[in-house]
Design a protein around this nucleic acid. Sequence first.
DNA 1: CCAAAAGTGTTCGTACTACACCCATGC
DNA 2: GCATGGGTGTAGTACGAACACTTTTGG
Lengths: 231, 231
Amino acid sequence: MGEGAIELAVSTVIFALQPEAGTGRPSIRVPLVRRTRAPFEGGWALPGGWADAREGLAASARRTLAETTGLEPAYLEQLYTLGAVDRSPTGRVVSVVYWALVRAEEAEAVPEGENVAWFPAEELPQLAFDHARIVEYALWRLRTKMEYSRIAHALLGETFTISELRRVHEAVRGVVLDPANFRRHVESSPALVPTGERLTGGAHRPPRLYRYDTEVRLADNGPLDDTEESR
Amino acid sequence: MGEGAIELAVSTVIFALQPEAGTGRPSIRVPLVRRTRAPFEGGWALPGGWADAREGLAASARRTLAETTGLEPAYLEQLYTLGAVDRSPTGRVVSVVYWALVRAEEAEAVPEGENVAWFPAEELPQLAFDHARIVEYALWRLRTKMEYSRIAHALLGETFTISELRRVHEAVRGVVLDPANFRRHVESSPALVPTGERLTGGAHRPPRLYRYDTEVRLADNGPLDDTEESR
DNA sequence: CCAAAAGTGTTCGTACTACACCCATGC
DNA sequence: GCATGGGTGTAGTACGAACACTTTTGG
């Protein structure tokens, strides 16, 4: 036993919401980086890099993310570990994949260029390795988890209106939600606390602003929660 | 970058139902193996071993399982990848952990001895490394998933009665279920098909036997399903 | 016939859906 | 004052929990 021929990599699927060009409606976007080395040199791939023996896996994810895109996600969770024998043409690579959510404001700050660009999650270019399937899985996970947990707020700013929160759900889950029922649904959670402030400057009745109680965990990840993950 | 100092291991948490000694009610059991090497020599640990560069991760899980316990699980799914820097005293080890279900009949066939033994999932001995937390997480996952998927049948034989299925749910989820409502609930699934046979030999009215349609997937694992997993 | 599990029927409460309606603000 | 999104009220419905009741076997 004891085999040294396996290299360990870490990749992250990052999601952010950005207003669509035509309509102003938010849509899911994913940042990709251009590969500067073979294999797939010049092709698009998920941000990531090699795991470092001196740091935990989540720390590696955060570090490689910062190095390649400059992003520091509000939410980070392990997704899956891929280890098919033939997934890299250069040798045996096992990838621990994370998925992350960043707030719209922070996503803006990423300097788009030749090496980093945001793509609509539904219209990705050809991706290196098995990264296309990874993104697909991450998207499925995001959608599934948004239905039963409160991760949506990791895509928003510190405070937000109920409409903004609803539009996040609508964009991610691809549905249209009844404003009245949605309001009651999220207001029933004690984690959603009104700030007392209102959002002024809009064209109509100024909506109340809310924030999430940070004491309450975003999602129930079971006994393995807040270990090296979950921020 | 490119760091070779990380060793990659694979472990599996296996669950089976075995009738309790006192009452005849089924209870969740986990097989553990005795460590034959330092660190934690002589202590109990999860079955596993080193990943082999020539096989996929799930294949490594199946192989190490067969080598250490002789078991070939009916259900196998990736659980989590642990990679804290200090989780092994001998160096940096990253473990890809799987969880599995085996049928009661197959669990019987495992020769208990000095090196392998079944323990009630709630009363485990001191475990090596961070394996105690892993089992806790796997148990949480098993319970959560049993509520919304149909994995229960992986703990039963080819055919089974609705009562047997209900007792599996009761044992795993630790609840008492109404037989009438449970029946209606599972019968509403088209994947549960009556064989036409009845289980005779009991003391009372012979119940109908059912089996699961194997065409239907056990659980929705999203786009990453039936890759190298899910048998 | 009796005990006990198999299996059916019915009621009740809750939670979600749909939608009617009032409120408050900028223009 | 009117258009529009913010916010409240309410009736209809689907689904699960509780439980009474009938059926079928072995002893």
